[in-house]
Computed example of a mutant assay.
Amino acid sequence: MGGTVTTVSSHGEHAFSKANRPAITLLAGLGVEGDAHAGVTVQHRSRVARDPTQPNLRQVHLIHEELFDEVAAAGFTVAPGELGENITTRGIDLLGLPTGTLLRIGREAVVEVTGLRNPCGQIDGFRAGLLKQVVGRDEETGEIVRKAGIMGIVRTGGVVRPGDPIEAELPDGPHHPLERV
Rank of each mutant, 00 (worst) to 15 (best):
V71W: 01
A74K: 09
S46C: 07
I153W: 02
L27S: 11
L116S: 08
I123F: 15
G39C: 04
L131A: 03
G31S: 07
K147L: 12
R127K: 12
Q43Y: 01
F68A: 09
V154L: 04
E33R: 11
T88K: 03
L95D: 08
L62D: 02
D93Q: 07
G149C: 10
A128G: 06
G29E: 10
V134N: 03
L178Q: 08
P52Y: 06
R58W: 13
E70D: 12
T6P: 00
D124Q: 05
E65R: 04
T4I: 05
I105R: 03
I150T: 14
I105E: 10
V160F: 07
N56H: 11
P52E: 11
R45A: 14
L95A: 13
R21I: 04
G39S: 07
G106C: 09
R58K: 15
N20W: 05
V8C: 05
A19T: 11
I105A: 03
I123D: 03
G29F: 00
E143F: 00
S10H: 14
G136L: 01
R146W: 06
V145L: 12
V145N: 03
I105S: 06
R146A: 12
I153L: 06
Q43P: 03
V40Q: 14
H37L: 13
V135H: 00
M151E: 15
I24Y: 02
D138H: 08
L57N: 13
S10R: 15
V160G: 13
E66S: 08
D124G: 06
G158L: 02
G84T: 09
A74I: 01
L83I: 06
E140Q: 13
Q43H: 07
R107F: 08
G2T: 14
V78P: 13
G81W: 10
V160S: 13
Q43F: 00
R104D: 14
A168D: 03
V111M: 01
H14D: 15
V110T: 15
A74L: 12
R180Q: 12
P119M: 11
V48Y: 05
G84K: 06
G157S: 12
E139V: 06
E108V: 10
G3W: 02
L62M: 15
P174C: 14
R47P: 00
P165V: 07
H176T: 14
L130M: 01
L57S: 12
R180M: 11
G31F: 04
L130F: 07
P98S: 09
L30W: 07
I153E: 13
P177F: 02
R161M: 12
G149P: 00
V110H: 01
P55A: 05
E108R: 10
T4P: 00
R180F: 02
L27D: 11
R47G: 05
I87D: 06
A109K: 01
G29D: 11
T53P: 08
N118C: 09
G75Q: 03
L170R: 03
T99W: 10
P98Y: 06
L95Y: 05
T41I: 01
R117H: 12
G2M: 04
L130C: 08
A38Y: 04
G39V: 12
G173H: 05
V111S: 02
P162A: 14
D35Y: 03
G34T: 07
R50V: 15
E70F: 06
H175A: 12
T77R: 07
I166H: 02
Q59Y: 02
I63V: 15
V42G: 13
R58C: 09
G39T: 10
R155F: 02
V159L: 10
